[in-house]
Design a protein around this nucleic acid. Structure first.
Lengths: 122, 122
DNA sequence: ATCCTCCTGCAACGTTTGGTTGCACTGCAG
DNA sequence: CTGCAGTGCAACCAAACGTTGCAGGAGGAT
């Protein structure tokens, strides 16, 4: 359960960080090092319970990890997983970029073929 | 309402590409160059109407642009907008990476400091 | 011009998800 | 033991994704 997850993760990963509140939770956890549903809820415009649900989602996506301390449940970011997630995002971005380049090349080819049509570059 | 959109876009952008179907729509539009709700729906596991709604969302996010041709409504990817979107994603990723690095440094410092005692900070 | 077909758009409905409130349960301190 | 702080569970509301069904308009065939 270490290597071939890359493709399966994809959708869960995107929907995990697709939510604005979850992104803020991740941000807070990154700056504070760790936090509970209660402490995070105090710094967010949503209730403690909402944060708790988001933490469950982030946990299932593997981005955070809980540590039970007494009656508290502290969450911390899983460095390796988040780093890998960032890499995934970048890779999708790169793929799109590549296709954009391809399209741009085709467009230029057409542009070149026309030679005396109206220019559209702005 | 033309220039300072960069920050406002953020949430709309993420939610736009956060949906798996919309990502696939973008992908299809990139490889095919253009497409209508009907042609895209044929290549996706959802109905034409669902695709149409997604196209509206993508349009409002500025990622695609419609072109009415007769009774058809062809959509095409807005190259510049998508490129900018990819840049946004990368920037968020970079920010997280930076914080991960910071945490890693702190962890190393603690590791270094303990040497012969417990490092727990409370 | 008429009919037929294809494509789009609108409306109603069901389901999942983000968010809320309220309550019950459990450690920890006095 | 009593009380408080923190978590977990359940019911409920709203928005979003997806479906079906139907009305309407542009094009082609007769």
């Amino acid at each position: 359960m270490s290597a071939p997850v890359v493709e399966r993760i994809d959708d869960e990963l995107w929907s995990a960080i697709g939510d604005p509140t979850r992104r803020r939770v991740l941000d807070l956890l990154l700056v504070a090092g760790e936090g509970t549903a209660t402490t995070l809820g105090e710094q967010l415009p949503v209730t403690r319970q909402a944060v708790a649900k988001h933490l469950v989602v982030l946990d299932r996506a593997g981005l955070v990890r809980p540590t039970s301390v007494g009656r508290e449940k502290r969450y911390r970011v899983d460095d390796a997983r988040l780093a890998r997630a960032v890499a995934q995002l970048s890779s999708v971005g790169s793929a799109w970029d590549a296709r954009l380049q391809r399209i741009k090349r085709i467009a230029e080819a057409i542009e070149l073929a026309k030679n005396n049509q109206e220019p559209k570059e702005s």
